[in-house]
Design a protein around this nucleic acid. Sequence first.
DNA 1: CGTGTAATTGATGTTAGTCAAGAGCAGTGG
DNA 2: CCACTGCTCTTGACTAACATCAATTACACG
Lengths: 231, 231
Amino acid sequence: MSLACATCPVRDRAACAVLSEEERSTLAAAGRSVQLSKGETLFRAGDSDAACATLLSGAMKVTSTDHDGTERILALIHPAGFIGELFRPFADYDVVALSDCDLCVFARSAMERALDRHPALTQALFRRAQEDLHASRALLALTGKNSASEKVTALILSLAQAASDSPCHPATVFDLPLSRGEIANLLGLTIETVSRQLTKLERGGLIAKRGTRGIELVDPARLQLASDLLP
Amino acid sequence: MSLACATCPVRDRAACAVLSEEERSTLAAAGRSVQLSKGETLFRAGDSDAACATLLSGAMKVTSTDHDGTERILALIHPAGFIGELFRPFADYDVVALSDCDLCVFARSAMERALDRHPALTQALFRRAQEDLHASRALLALTGKNSASEKVTALILSLAQAASDSPCHPATVFDLPLSRGEIANLLGLTIETVSRQLTKLERGGLIAKRGTRGIELVDPARLQLASDLLP
DNA sequence: CGTGTAATTGATGTTAGTCAAGAGCAGTGG
DNA sequence: CCACTGCTCTTGACTAACATCAATTACACG
């Protein structure tokens, strides 16, 4: 399926937004639109010539699988995010859809050519890599030190932010893109601990659960302070 | 002090290695050589127009300071590493020398001009950013799941690797660039736990301590397997 | 050779993990 | 419509690993 940049939901925010209309349509000719259902894998650690892609809608996870087979979620990808390790012969991570996703996929070779041809695109991707680095370090800071409550609270706020269309206000009612197990995995906790923290937050009147995946921020301000200071 | 690329210890590995002699000397004219003593700060979170730099020798740490004033080490920088967040108006992190360091420092504006002028340099920095991202995710995977022994073991191996001049073999005797407190901080542990793990590794015959900071890898192969499986 | 900081070691406490059981829910088929 | 199956999530009781508190010892540096 060919690409329709004109109707692209992230046309203003994705890396390719730096290109002119004409440049973009040339690049688009090399790419293709891909749909993934929840649970499907875009590529797997060890794949050679793994493709790269821009996420248009949905959410994905980046995971590494340990020598003993346990999975660890290292990052989430939100719309307009770029996926792909252009400089490594083999992919290091698995990239899996957390929900149904639309992607704009390019062969590695096509993207390398585009980088050589469009320095502005390279800069845009460089910038995005620095943002990813920043996000990774933020997660590192979060998981490294804080208590379970703080981890869960911070993740909820961050997901509320990502679920919102406005860049400054979090959504007040939204669905978690992650199962309890995935949240636990991402935060370095267990399912049980996550579940306990969520009910603690609910009892404290900070959030309300809307079914299994839904969350309502009842008191976002207090949520932002600390969840450990509660009774 | 002006730059002497001809004698630069990382001339083949740093990002600027992709430039021609001539291009490089033009860039060098905009930069300056800087020496930092152990403990000195290159720049601080919140600094505007923070400079950027290539590390020539020594080791540095990237830290964030929490709202409550506690520091968290997010990354280490080794020679040939690039420092600087080109796309953010303010620095997010502190960057501090762990040992005496030599750096090659550029004003942000000069580096931005160089990026526009030299697409190959942008690609090189993009590549380096992806490597940093990879390192950050590796650290995330390490700190997230594993036991204290595994964390300490993995860090020792990684530092032995960085201390070696060969890219494939770790150094067998080297000095830790970090204090116990810094190791603990980096791994999300406490000083005491790190200390206990080190003595456990020494008692198990896997390493030997050479003074306070020195480490000898007595049995690197066994070290690589698991330190939890010991008596 | 002192003095202060960093590291080690031991005793005790707390948090989150583990084990285990039950509740809520969606999809299936009688 | 209701029971059945297979999930995920929740909740409780117990445990283990690491943190915390408290000395003591080893180093580095003046």
